[in-house]
Nucleic acid binder design. Structure first.
Lengths: 346, 346
DNA sequence: AGATTGTGCGCAACCGTTTGCGCCTTGGCA
DNA sequence: TGCCAAGGCGCAAACGGTTGCGCACAATCT
């Protein structure tokens, strides 16, 4: 019924030995006699002794805790990344503290500060949509804090990162539309300051160029990240007098928003307009019509980023951290929103 | 470029004063002269001093950290709960460590142990599907660890909890089907050992009874939690010769799975069979036909659970913890999967 | 028998911060 | 001039665990 946990000192007192002996007995140190070890272990078991990892962290200056700064957990992609992070971290004996920036620069800075205060052994970061300034990250690097960016990295920092092949995914998506015979392919772009947005846009442009299309700037609309913004962007596009026969959206919610708006206008997908999203969120296979999209391996990204971070942590005292930038392959998942045949469902 | 952070001792040494003075200066203790305070603050600022919260935790036996044990982050409902937890916790100056049990009993036990070792100030728990035994939770209660269950609680424990009105939600869902003129209403139930499953089944049964329906046991199938299990259950149901005209599923994935299977059989929804899910996941409004479902306030649940937990933590040294069991209202969201009129879309 | 070796354990410092207590200095007052 | 009260600061212990070192004792060797 006591509210405090058993300590090594409690065991020492009960057994009339010193705390050091208890400590060594518990870790099977050769200096301790078998009899003492047995007694200590039995009592520890009986009292349900749990080592106080706070004390351990203080002593060792190692918390065995990783900090994660992420825009939003509720996005399916990010939660799969977290799943990957947790799996690798837990297997390696690390805990994970997650901080959501909610896409806000200020909360991101606060989160980084809080994690610094918690003395995490390393950080995994995907930057917020609002973030323009990167002094808080530069600060981490200066302090020698192990750091890996995932999915959304920032340019100009000496930090490791793991991203997906946004350019290639976008390229193949656009290529797919072209090969389906689409002639007027629009792009709904993500927020301008995110690298994922610009990479995807570049992939789109490159594909158009490679296949001899003339780039029409008014077919590219900076939309945002949400369903609502996707609908709104689609509305703008149609109002501008443009009538594309295909849409490549920078992410799935944008694509879904566009799809919804087109439905309200009686424009049918894929007959009149084909649509491709990005991420392969589970929802994309369930909507009508099922959405062609670019799959990004979120779980693998989380795993890889964490492996890289742990490696940095282990090597911390050695020579230079050896910066790594990894790119994971994306995969085009073709569904009915771009099929040129008649829709299958109904 | 140093890899370690500035401490109070570094400041003390630089200023040729004692660490105690630095400590007091930083917290504006009246014993310290204004001149000293100023000097300390300026240096602290300049060196970017961050209090070591590990040391603080050890000293105060308070980590200002909350532990969350949750089946899966990737479920939308749970991630909204986490968003609520994080918001309240961060506002109160607490960090959050999240452990996923992945619906496994063993990982749940491990997580609880790990959180105990981390000396979290309290825990928020939603139990795993596999969990039958509750000794690990009883253990927490015996130790006086503040504890609040959310969504999935366990019976027979003296612990606070916040759940949704599963019974009422299920009742109203079933009632809605009845009022739509459905005569043969089947139920796809969740895992048997989860309270949410039994509560929802009870609500279903009660509604049938209240409206004078005869309970047909073979219209109730224990399915699981996933889309695949929903499809499988629907298949079983049809193979058994039953042909219900309505389905109340214990959660959205089950409902979606059932819907998918019905589509493959050429059975149309809602004309031939009406379907209702549970949770109002965002996907439900986007599928074809949009799914009627029971909305549960996940974000509010997270907030409330955390408030209750923090209250328990603050009051910890006072008298008895005052057990609370809260129930949040659910709301029936009517969409086209149960509309008796002709479908709107297409 | 004396020296050497090994065994089993305790002492004390340390990680970074807080805090009760006591010390020294200064100034005001009688 | 002597006394007392503040004011301003440092000492040291404490939180729980780890670890280098040294100590006492017994066994072994020469």
């Amino acid at each position: 019924m006591k509210s405090s946990q058993i300590t090594i000192k409690d065991i020492a007192r009960a057994l009339k030995i010193s705390p050091s002996t208890v400590s060594r007995a518990l870790k099977d140190h050769p200096d301790i006699s078998p009899a003492t070890k047995l007694a200590v272990r039995e009592l520890a078991q009986e009292l349900d002794y749990q080592p106080n990892s706070v004390a351990l962290s203080l002593r060792k200056s190692r918390t065995h805790t990783l900090g994660v700064v992420i825009p939003q957990i509720v996005h399916h992609f990010f939660s799969t990344v977290i799943a990957g992070i947790e799996d690798v971290a837990n297997d390696a004996g690390y805990q994970v503290i997650i901080c959501q920036s909610n896409e806000s620069y200020e909360r991101e800075v606060q989160s980084v500060q809080a994690l610094l205060g918690s003395r995490v052994d390393g950080m995994l970061v995907s930057v917020a949509q609002d973030t323009q300034e990167v002094r808080h990250f530069q600060n981490l690097i200066n302090k020698g804090m192990p750091l890996v960016f995932f999915d959304r990295m920032v340019e100009g920092l000496e930090a490791s990162s793991v991203v997906v092949d946004d350019f290639g995914g976008a390229y193949r998506a656009t290529e797919h539309l072209i090969r389906q015979g689409r002639k007027k392919i629009a792009h709904l772009a993500g927020p301008e300051n995110l690298m994922i947005s610009s990479s995807r846009q570049k992939g789109y442009r490159q594909a158009l160029e490679d296949f001899g299309f003339r780039m029409q700037p008014d077919l590219v609309i900076t939309a945002g990240l949400t369903i609502e913004e996707g609908s709104e962007a689609m509305r703008k596009l149609l109002n501008s007098g443009q009538r594309p026969d295909a849409i490549f959206a920078a992410n799935d919610p944008l694509a879904i928003g566009a799809l919804k708006f087109l439905k309200t206008q009686g424009i049918s997908v894929p007959e009149d307009v084909a649509i491709i999203g990005f991420s392969d969120e589970p929802i994309t296979s369930l909507i009508d019509p099922p959405l062609t999209t670019v799959a990004q391996p979120g779980y693998e990204m989380g795993k890889l980023a964490t492996h890289m971070l742990l490696q940095q942590i282990e090597l911390k005292d050695e020579e230079e951290p050896e910066l790594q930038r990894k790119e994971l392959r994306t995969e085009l998942v073709i569904r009915q929103s771009t099929s040129s045949e008649k829709k299958l469902a109904s």
